[in-house]
């Protein structure tokens, strides 16, 4: 069942990507791809290198070796703002809205600078209002982030990432810390985004989400890819079970499934 040859056009191709921090190989020789309109999940125990991969793809870090291609064009080593304008939007694991800006202003910022060609202030504001409605912040446009709940702050993150009109959307643990009801809402939102044609790479710990919405799953452990495939196959992979159960015996991590 493995999709080694993607049926759809490949949007993101990560090739033998490696990133060291001093002696630590945070990401080692990792390759995977995301097809257009696909939802791919990156999973793995804490410290597996998931967020490092996001930081490499979005340009926050430069890879030591390997290549990252977006629609066939190499983006490895470009600066974050260039990569953003080429069509990569991302959220942050720890929510980082601009505190002194309103919800709307946060989203407008993404719409104003994140794309090529540039749009006018008026267009940006109109689109930002639409996006706020889409993620469920339509009645909180003038609110400041600090006065909002955790799920609403995550909504700002998503709306702001969408405002750059990304070809590829990177969602870093947008569902963690949510109640089951809130998680269901978030899943519906992601599926709604998929209907509009978005391609999504997400990092997620909540297995219900991973199983429910991913087309494919890439499993990382100690910075290396240990498994890849459709979710129902990956959870039965002995290497994946070992990685997670091994952690459980150490008592350092919660069982993920």
């Amino acid at each position: 069942m493995r999709k080694d040859a993607p049926a759809k056009m490949t949007l993101l191709q990560v090739d033998r990507l490696t990133k060291h921090f001093g002696g630590l190989a945070a990401v080692h020789d990792v390759s995977f791809h995301v097809g257009e309109r696909e939802i791919v999940s990156l999973i793995g125990p804490n410290g597996a290198g998931k967020t490092t991969i996001f930081n490499l793809v979005s340009g926050v870090y430069r890879p030591n070796s390997g290549d990252i291609r977006l629609g066939g064009e190499s983006i490895a080593g470009l600066r974050p703002f260039d990569i953003c304008r080429k069509g990569v939007g991302r959220t942050f694991q720890i929510m980082q809205p601009f505190p002194k800006m309103t919800v709307l202003e946060n989203v407008v910022t993404g719409a104003l600078f994140g794309r090529k060609p540039k749009v006018s202030m008026k267009t940006a504001e109109g689109e930002a209002v639409e996006l706020c409605r889409l993620v469920g912040l339509g009645d909180k446009l003038k609110a400041f982030p600090k006065n909002l709940t955790v799920p609403d702050q995550k909504r700002i993150e998503i709306a702001r990432a969408l405002a750059v009109r990304p070809k590829l959307l990177l969602l870093d643990e947008v569902m963690s810390g949510l109640t089951p009801t809130e998680t269901d809402e978030a899943i519906r939102l992601v599926l709604k985004l998929r209907e509009t044609g978005a391609t999504i790479l997400l990092i997620e710990h909540v297995m219900k989400v991973v199983m429910g919405i991913s087309d494919r799953v890439v499993v990382l452990h100690h910075g290396e890819k240990i498994s890849e495939g459709p979710p129902f196959l990956v959870v039965d992979d002995p290497k994946v079970i070992e990685a997670y159960l091994g952690k459980m015996v150490d008592g350092e991590d919660e069982p993920a499934c």
């Binding site: 979005s58 340009g59 926050v60 600066r79 974050p80 703002f81 953003c84 304008r85 991302r90 942050f92 980082q96 601009f98 505190p99 002194k100 800006m101 202003e105 407008v108 910022t109 993404g110 104003l112 600078f113 994140g114 794309r115 202030m121 940006a124 702001r160 405002a163 750059v164």
Partner: peptide, 25 residues
Amino acid sequence: QSRLNFAFTAIRENEDVANVLGINP
């Protein structure tokens, strides 16, 4: 009144996030 205000404020409040949102700090 201009988009500069958004760029300046975003850079001041969080340069890394501004960068990821397409602003060249």
